[in-house]
Design a protein around this nucleic acid. Structure first.
Lengths: 364, 364
DNA sequence: TACGATAACTTGTACGTACAATCGAAGAGG
DNA sequence: CCTCTTCGATTGTACGTACAAGTTATCGTA
């Protein structure tokens, strides 16, 4: 019945493999002896041996002299599972990123996955390098924090390659607009809203905002900041809104703050800062201007990083899930890999933590 | 000449492998035909075929019907360039460790290596998990920060496995005593010495020391601390030396400090702390006791972490190479992998950074 | 010269025999 | 009851034959 062109030993091999697949041969179960098979299939023992030899080399069978031949699910099938997950973040050593990585690492290790880590320093070329390295060898999944998410995404090809290869990935903190992809993030707009709203409730009306504009996180926080003003019927002066890029972050906002603080009575009474890192920097600007936080100027940060409680004046700030987000991202990605689950967005609500950097203003 | 117990086809296999190793058979070169080999070695063609079959499965030979058999260096040797390096640290998210990881990551990425990251939380079982995961798939090299280096090393077997597989590794911060292995570290003893010496020069005589005892780093810093006292002819009171373990770190030293500070006039005038993290904690103890740094109590930290300059009172501390150490570790490991260079120890000299947490004491 | 047939050589498939080495169970002996 | 031996079953090693299938070079013919 079989095509005579197919060698007998290959036919036998296929037959045995189908036995294994159908469960007719359970792992550990003994296979009929070489002589039995030979008789049954009408071939010589040598031919059967050839088949068995290949199947043994490939890990399907185990032959034990004097005992017999036994089926075993090839270890490779399990071992071949790559079980390596990559994480690409903008930064590794600074700020809240170590905590995100840590959460993911702990989860991955407990699930038997290995973690490949790479950073981009918020630089598109390095993001490309990282993607290249990550995809150069088998990978189970990828977690990415977008680099300069507000700008375009020149590395789209790599993400399409991931989709083609069926490698699931998800984003944290932000997503690239061009990509259909699940994302775990903080509701940045709500955060910006809450920060401004809180200050307004405390009686502040002259509020300056400092936001990063090359990350969508900054753009969204600014959006919330403006929305809160609108809701309160107070207009936010454009002069009081400073936006900056990654490259400018170490100097430009600081200078702008100094300038505002030098305006005497017309100076703002509060700063809403893109994140704690900037907040700490601006607190130094306040001190350098001979003023005090919160007596003269109130400051609100973002992300509740260690900086917030380490600094001299404990910083009022908004929470960021950090470790939990890393852990959740990892466990969701594993679910996508192992159960093939569909990815869904997840949005964390930031909450305000009141500390010592905001003062109440008594009107009149 | 060969032991008759060794099957002929195995003997032939070994012979051919030695040809490949010695260069008698260059890759790509044609191997004598089955019949020639059979005649030459006085065996049947079937036996030669058995040998060739195995060597082909293992990737040493390539057989082409009608053409002949050809040697090929198994792709594994060159093609499978793994280019993945693992790093196992005690912590990922805290303290100076993110900076070490970052230095290593940047170097590895620029050299085209991928970084596998894992942490142990200073816990031996997790170290085992990490080693298991790391070695479960091909690896080019490994950088390890020992977990509880002052205690024994129950995971010795994994390190021996690395040596067997020819995977180079090196240690940072400390080394396990049981292992012959290159190590990049700070001269902790010199650091402890410098810290104590500096305080003694400032007129302090009642100096308390707080050191971790399950890491060799802490043991060595304590050693230097004591040596400086001896050199100055001042005895360090055992009551003033507190040692603690990882598990105790969040509470025990704090309580001990409170107790010392409650001794009134007899209280110590300075604290030498295992690291900045502890120093910040003890500064809080000082504040909680109604005292001030540096007026009432001077504090010296270690490692010049971000905590040192973020805190209210800027901390006088000793330097740690951090990022540079990570970068150097990576580049040395790559040299070991690619040039087969021998690993050498590298010791960094810590330097004292004077900030605001130490006061001069006027004698009399 | 260009082309195809052929021969010589290679490895691939398939069958066969014989005996060795090993394992496990059955049986013999204490 | 325990131990040793024996024996049958199984895989391992080694040799052999025969023919199929693919590659290459040579030779003969148009």
């Amino acid at each position: 019945m079989n095509n005579r062109r197919i060698p007998k030993y290959i036919q036998l091999k296929n037959e045995l493999l189908s036995w294994l697949e159908s469960g007719k041969l359970q792992r550990g179960q003994q296979v009929p002896s070489e002589n039995e098979i030979a008789e049954q299939f009408g071939m010589s023992r040598q031919t059967v041996r050839q088949t068995f030899g290949e199947l043994e080399k490939e890990g399907w069978l185990e032959r034990i002299q004097g005992k017999g031949t036994f089926a075993r699910s090839p270890e490779r099938r399990e071992g071949e599972q790559v079980k390596t997950i990559g994480i690409i973040t903008t930064y590794i050593s600074d700020y809240i990123f170590p905590h995100i990585v840590r959460g993911a690492e702990a989860e991955l290790r407990s699930q038997g996955y290995r973690l490949l880590l790479s950073s981009t320093d918020n630089n598109k070329e390095k993001e490309m390098e990282s993607l290249q390295l990550m995809t150069s060898q088998p990978l189970s999944g990828l977690i990415i924090e977008p680099t300069k998410s507000a700008e375009g995404n020149p590395n789209l090809a790599y993400f399409l390659e991931l989709q083609e290869k069926g490698i699931p990935y998800l984003m944290i903190n932000e997503k690239y607009r061009e990509l259909e992809c699940a994302c775990l993030k903080v509701d940045d707009e709500a955060g910006g809203y809450k920060a401004a709203q809180y200050l307004l409730e405390q009686g502040h009306t002259q509020i300056a905002g400092f936001f990063k504009r090359d990350d969508l996180q900054g753009v969204n926080r600014l959006k919330g900041f403006l929305a809160a003003h609108k809701a309160a019927g107070i207009s936010a002066s454009p002069k009081r809104v400073v936006t900056y890029t990654t490259e400018q972050k170490s100097d430009f906002p600081y200078q702008q703050a100094l300038q505002m603080l030098a305006e005497g009575e017309k100076r703002p009474t509060a700063f809403v800062c893109y994140n704690d890192e900037l907040a700490v920097m601006l607190m130094e600007a306040v001190a350098a201007s001979g003023l005090q936080v919160p007596e003269d100027v109130s400051v609100i940060g973002f992300d509740d990083s260690s900086l917030a409680s380490a600094s001299g004046t404990k910083l009022t700030t908004l929470t960021h899930p950090k470790t939990v987000m890393g852990q959740t991202a990892a466990s969701r990605l594993i679910a996508m890999i192992e159960q093939g689950e569909q990815a869904e967005d997840m949005v964390y609500e930031p909450e305000l933590i009141e500390r010592d950097s905001v003062a109440k203003i008594n009107k009149g």
